[in-house]
């Protein structure tokens, strides 16, 4: 993302949301990007998928009226039937109902984790890139400590420290822990991207001009640097949303992430693996939902990057 700058205009006008919707006159970075984005079928396909997933998360009762926790052991492993179209798992849960209800926790973790990563990483990156020198070295070294910890390894160490294996914990607590674990291990990535962008923006003439005109550091960062460094971080956040959904599922699969009272796709896959030979549907359906969800966000991220990254043109 090193040569974004030439394409940018020091418009410094509206914030990203307003401008993203085309509030700026033609020619601005955000309006340009939105224009290109609108013409990509990939973008609309991904948006439609994400829309459906969001509805599923907010109002699962639109899709199913079956209680995801209702289990009938007599029907354990039953094949698909009119009242449970995906069949039933080992405990006799309706797989379809569970897969629908699994959307909410999965997406919540993905959303909170990418928000947390971007906010924490961007603030650290902005400070490092803008202040430079000694503060930059300090923040960079600090980030490397966390980046040096391989993701799954770090996740296992952190999550098993706070919950002993097999311990029963509440829904809110475990979701918070999983989100924080992902954020703690991933913020260095966002920080590096933001730092590189901020370092470059700080050297630009319009920043020097603003400083010469007497703008304070807050104003320079908020009005001039931030709008011109947000694009790479937002692309990262979109792709990372998908990646974090996968990460949540991986941690749940290992038995250290979300667990029983919470229904997520990762939890369902984790529960299915012992008996996958007898009840393959308990693995394949949640896995399909998971893959489609991750795919939707990665596709969206791809489309957004193509639209906002001048190098790809």
């Amino acid at each position: 993302m090193t040569d974004t700058a030439p394409a940018l205009r020091p418009a410094g006008a509206a914030g990203p949301e307003g401008a993203g919707a085309g509030a700026e006159p033609a020619g601005g970075l955000w309006a340009d990007g939105w224009d290109r984005l609108r013409r990509r079928p990939l973008f609309w396909a991904a948006s439609a998928l994400i829309g459906v997933l969001l509805v599923m998360a907010v109002a699962p009762s639109l899709f199913t009226s079956v209680d995801p926790q209702a289990a009938d052991l007599a029907l354990s492993g039953a094949d698909s039937s009119p009242d449970a179209i995906f069949g039933r798992d080992l405990q006799g849960h309706d797989i379809y109902a569970r897969a629908i209800h699994g959307a909410a926790p999965t997406l919540t973790v993905g959303l909170l984790a990418s928000l947390g990563t971007v906010v924490l990483g961007s603030m650290a990156g902005l400070v490092a890139g803008y202040v430079g020198g000694w503060g930059d070295s300090l923040i960079s070294r600090f980030a490397e400590v966390f980046a040096g910890l391989p993701f799954i390894l770090g996740g296992i160490v952190i999550l098993t420290t706070f919950n002993k294996p097999g311990q029963i914990v509440g829904e809110v607590r475990i979701v918070t822990q999983v989100v924080l674990t992902i954020v703690v291990l991933s913020w260095p990535l966002a920080m590096r991207i933001m730092r590189a962008a901020a370092l470059e923006a700080t050297q630009q003439d319009y920043v020097r001009a603003a400083r010469a005109l007497g703008a304070g550091p807050w104003r320079i960062v908020a009005r001039h640097i931030l709008p011109n460094t947000l694009a790479p971080v937002l692309v990262f956040a979109t792709i990372q949303f998908g990646v974090f959904i996968g990460a949540e599922a991986t941690l749940s699969f290992l038995g250290i992430g979300l667990r029983d009272p919470v229904v997520s796709w990762g939890v369902m896959i984790s529960e299915s693996q012992e008996r996958v030979a007898d009840i393959p549907q308990a693995l394949f359906f949640p896995a399909a939902f998971l893959v489609v969800a991750v795919l939707a966000f990665v596709m969206l991220g791809d489309a957004v990057r193509d639209a906002f990254d001048p190098r790809g043109r």
Binding site: T250, A287, L295
Partner: peptide, 18 residues
């Protein structure tokens, strides 16, 4: 490549093993 990126390793592993 999109599908490969979207497939978590444990899903690929479990499906191929199965």
């Amino acid at each position: 490549t999109l599908v490969l990126i979207a497939l978590p390793v444990f899903v690929t592993g479990l499906v191929l093993r199965q």
